[in-house]
């Protein structure tokens, strides 16, 4: 009986953890010195596909990606699975494309440091982790607190 109760509690905890992860709100962040305040979904897609390599002020885009949220970010922004996105980048690099593939971070602090130290950096992370060391962008004019924010 005791073991069964522990098992049930463990399952409930697991479900709660998974549902929290699934509901993670993704913040798109840039360096604090980047004049940009808003980015369109189209521009975000083009940047992470390596089709756009410079910001409107001429600064080179330096892509970063946060491993725990990559799958949901690529699904939402690129409409691609992680595998397809990787294959896309392989084709781009090996055919001489000018874009530099994203630098991958497993640790959110490393991700933030990278954005903080790279003037052209753009990345994504859980909204809860985005502090004042980075600048949070609105997407198509919608702030992360908006009901219809596209990366919820």
């Amino acid at each position: 009986m005791k073991a069964a109760t522990i098992n049930i509690l463990a399952i409930i905890l697991l479900v709660l953890t998974l549902s929290t992860a699934a509901q993670a709100q993704i913040a798109v962040v840039v360096n604090k010195n980047n004049p940009m305040a808003d980015i369109s979904m189209k521009m975000l897609e083009r940047a992470y596909l390596g089709k756009t390599t410079v910001f409107s002020d001429g600064q080179n885009i330096v892509l970063a990606e946060y491993a725990p949220l990559m799958e949901s970010f690529f699904e939402s922004v690129l409409g691609m699975t992680l595998n397809k996105a990787k294959v896309h980048w392989l084709k781009l690099i090996l055919s001489g494309g000018t874009a530099i593939p994203p630098t991958k971070f497993d640790d959110v602090e490393d991700n933030k440091k990278f954005v903080m130290h790279n003037r052209g950096a753009i990345s994504f992370m859980d909204m809860a982790d985005a502090d004042d060391t980075v600048k949070i962008l609105t997407i198509d004019g919608k702030s992360p607190s908006a009901e219809d924010y596209p990366l919820k």
Binding site: K51, T52, T53, V54, G58, V87, L90, K91, L94, S95, G96, T98
Partner: peptide, 28 residues
Amino acid sequence: YSDAFQLRMGTFLTPFGIYNERHDATPT
């Protein structure tokens, strides 16, 4: 210079068809 204008000088793979610039990259 920008996404709209780049210049290459040297030896390059001829941009022809879907594959020539991917060259021998069989994983792709």
